[in-house]
C-alpha cells in the first residue's frame, strides 16, 4: 500500500466536481445564460439566483457554468493539439536522432525564446478571434514544450534493454514507439499534461480578458471577468464568482499534477 497522497485525492475530487458541473452546464442551466430578466437586475446572491444576477438580470450561476464549459473546451483542445503533435515530434526525434532532430531542436530553442504569451498573441491576431482559432494558437504555442519533454524520454528509452529486445524480435517502429515506449513514459507525460492544462486555462482567461480570445457569443470565464470588472463597484459578486471558478479549475488539476509528481519520487 502506498502512503496516502492527499494532493492526488483532493485534486481528483475537485476536478471531478468541476467536470461534473461543466457537464451539467452543457445539458442544463437553472436559467438561460442569455435570458435577461428585467425584474431581477443586479441582484445579490440568493437562493433564487445562487451567484446573483448581472446588470441585465442574467443569472450569473448559469453564465459561469456555460463559461467554464467554454474555457474547459478551449483548454482541452489546446492540450490535445499540443500533446498529440508534441508527442509525435518528440517520439520521432528522440528515437531516431540525427540531423532532423538537430534542426527541429534548434527551431524549438528559437520558439521557446519567444515568450509563449507573446507568440499566442501574435498568432491569434493573425488568425482572428474565435474559440477554434484560440485553441489552434495556444496549441501551437504548447507543442515545443511537450516535444522537448517527450524527446528526452524517448532518447533515454532508446538504449534500454526492453527496447533493444523489441527491436531484435522485429517489432515495427510504430509498435516500438507507441506500444513499448509510450506506456513507460505516461507518468511523465501526464504531469506535463496537468501543467499544460493549467497554462491553457490561464492563457485562455488572459486572451479572452483582453478581448482577443473567444467571441462574446460563447462567453468564457476570461471574457466574463473582463465584463465583470466594469460592474465591480455595483456587483462585486459577479467578478468573485467568475474568478473563483477559474481558481478551482486550476487548483484541482494543479493538485493532481503535484500528487503525481510526489508519487514518482
Amino acid at each position: 500500500m502506498k502512503k496516502k497522497n492527499l494532493f492526488l485525492t483532493v485534486g481528483l475530487f475537485l476536478t471531478a466536481l468541476m467536470i461534473l458541473l461543466i457537464l451539467v452546464g452543457y445539458l442544463w442551466t437553472p436559467y438561460s445564460p442569455m435570458a435577461m430578466d428585467a425584474t431581477a437586475l443586479g441582484q445579490r446572491p440568493s437562493l433564487v439566483h445562487l451567484m446573483g444576477t448581472d446588470k441585465f438580470g442574467r443569472d450569473i450561476f448559469s453564465r459561469v457554468l456555460k463559461g467554464a464549459g467554454a474555457t474547459f473546451f478551449v483548454a482541452f483542445g489546446t492540450v490535445l493539439i499540443g500533446t498529440l503533435v508534441g508527442t509525435l515530434v518528440g517520439a520521432l526525434t528522440g528515437y531516431f536522432g540525427g540531423w532532423v532532430d538537430e534542426v527541429l531542436m534548434r527551431l524549438n530553442d528559437a520558439l521557446s525564446a519567444f515568450p509563449s504569451f507573446l507568440l499566442a498573441l501574435v498568432l491569434i491576431s493573425v488568425l482572428g478571434p474565435g474559440r477554434y482559432h484560440l485553441m489552434l494558437a495556444l496549441g501551437i504555442v504548447f507543442i515545443p514544450s511537450y516535444a522537448r519533454i517527450v524527446r528526452s524520454e524517448f532518447a533515454r528509452a532508446r538504449s534500454q534493454n526492453y527496447v533493444k529486445s523489441a527491436q531484435l524480435m522485429g517489432a515495427s517502429v510504430p509498435r516500438i514507439l507507441f506500444v513499448h515506449i509510450l506506456p513507460n513514459i505516461w507518468q511523465v507525460l501526464l504531469s506535463a499534461i496537468t501543467i499544460g492544462f493549467n497554462n491553457a486555462v490561464l492563457s485562455e482567461a488572459a486572451m479572452s480578458y483582453l478581448n482577443i480570445g473567444v467571441s462574446p457569443d460563447d462567453a468564457s470565464l476570461g471574457y466574463m471577468l473582463s465584463d465583470s470588472q466594469t460592474y465591480l463597484a455595483s456587483a462585486p459578486w459577479y467578478a468573485m464568482c467568475t474568478g473563483l471558478m477559474i481558481v478551482l479549475l486550476i487548483l484541482g488539476v494543479g493538485l493532481i499534477g503535484e500528487g503525481l509528481q510526489r508519487r514518482q519520487l
Binding site: A239, G243, I246, V247, I250, G254
Partner: peptide, 12 residues
C-alpha cells in the same frame, strides 16, 4: 497562490 491568475488577483 499558484492557482490564482494574476488578472483575478488584480481585480480582487
Amino acid at each position: 497562490l499558484m492557482s490564482v491568475p494574476p488578472l483575478f488577483t488584480g481585480i480582487l
